[in-house]
Design a protein around this nucleic acid. Structure first.
Lengths: 171, 171
DNA sequence: CCTGGATATTTTAAACTTAAAATATCTTTC
DNA sequence: GAAAGATATTTTAAGTTTAAAATATCCAGG
C-alpha cells in the first residue's frame, strides 16, 4: 500500500503555522504565531469561563471594561475600548441588561448618548470571576520568566505603536 | 462646571489596556497587549480584504490552509489547523463550494471523511490575493527591525510551547 | 433660528462561531 | 461477526460580529 496518507500524521495538532515554510517572510511568520498564541489563550479562557461561571468571553471582556470605569462609559467609548463595532456592543449590552448585570441610563447633557455601568449584581459577579481569571492567565504564562514577559511586553508595545500609526492614515 | 467628563478625553482611541493599572499582574498586561496587537492586525487585514478583493478573513484563512496542502485536507484537519470547530468549517466550506473556489470529495478509504481542496479557480483567486496580503502585513510590521521580529518570534514560540503543554492535560 | 455636517446609537441582514446533539462510519474486542 | 467505543462530519440553536443603512441629536455658520 503506497497511497497518499491523508491523515497527515505530522500534523497531529496543527495550527496556522502548519505548512508554512521557514523561508517565508519573517513578518508573516510573526503574525501567524501571534495569532496562534492569541487563539490558544482565548480558547482556554472561553472554556474556563463557560465551565466555571457559565458565561462567555465577550460578556466577561465587556464587564472588565466597565469595572475599570466606575463612572460608566458611553456605548461609543465601550466599543472603542473593546475594538468592536457599535452594533456589537448594543447587542451585548442588551443581553447583560436583561440579565441584570449592567444598567443603561441617558448621558447627562447629551441626549444621543447612553452611559452604561455595572449594577451592584454585575460588580459582584465580576469580582467573583476575577481571581480565577487571573489564575488561568498566570498558569498559561508559566513557561515564561519575568525577563521574557517584560521583553515581550516591550516588543508588543513597539508593534502596537507601529500598528497605531497606520490607523490614523486610513484613506 | 466641575462635572465628571464622560467623554474621557484621555481615551481618544482606547483599547483593551485602557484603564489598566501599571501594577496589575504582568501576565495580564502581556495578554491584553497581545490581544490588542492581534485585533489591530486582524481589523486591518479584514478591511483590506473587503475593499480590495471583496472577500472575508475566514475565507482567506481557509484558502491559505488549502493552498499549503495541495493534496487537500480533511474537514477535521482543516478545523484543527484553523483552530475552530468542525461545524464552523462545514459552513465556510459550504459557501466556498457554492462560489466554486473549493471542491469537496469523499476521502479514499474512509467513507466518513471528506477531502477538500482548492479548485483551479480557487487557486487562481488565492494567488491573486497573496502579494497584496504580504504587502499589508509587511507594512504593519514596518516599525519593527529584523532583530525585533526574530526576538518576538522566539518569545512567542516559548509562549506557544507553554500554552501547548497545558492543552494536552485537559482533564 | 435654521440648515448642513458631524457625532452617538440602533437597526438590519448576512456571515461567522461556538457547544452540544445527531449521524454515519470505522475499529477493536470478545 | 456483533457489540461497544472511537472518529469524522453535519446539524441545530443560540450567540457574536460585521458593515451598512437608518435615527436621533448636537454643533457651527450664516
Amino acid at each position: 500500500m503506497d497511497e497518499v496518507d491523508l491523515t497527515d500524521r505530522a500534523e497531529v495538532q496543527g495550527d496556522f503555522e502548519t505548512g508554512l515554510n521557514a523561508d517565508d517572510q519573517l513578518e508573516l511568520r510573526v503574525w501567524l504565531r501571534l495569532l496562534t498564541c492569541a487563539n490558544l489563550i482565548e480558547r482556554n479562557v472561553r472554556q474556563n469561563l463557560r465551565e466555571t461561571f457559565d458565561t462567555t468571553l465577550p460578556r466577561f471582556d465587556l464587564m472588565a471594561q466597565l469595572d475599570r470605569a466606575p463612572d460608566g462609559l458611553t456605548m461609543g467609548a465601550l466599543s472603542r475600548r473593546m475594538m468592536v463595532t457599535n452594533g456589537n456592543v448594543t447587542g451585548l449590552i442588551d443581553r447583560l441588561v436583561t440579565e441584570g448585570l449592567v444598567e443603561r441610563r441617558p448621558a447627562p447633557g447629551d441626549r444621543r448618548a447612553q452611559v452604561v455601568r455595572l449594577t451592584r449584581a454585575g460588580k459582584r459577579a465580576f469580582d467573583g470571576m476575577t481571581p480565577a481569571h487571573a489564575d488561568w492567565i498566570n498558569e498559561m504564562f508559566k513557561g515564561l520568566g519575568r525577563q521574557d514577559m517584560t521583553a515581550l511586553l516591550r516588543l508588543l508595545a513597539k508593534l502596537k505603536q507601529s500598528l497605531a500609526e497606520r490607523e490614523g492614515q486610513e484613506k
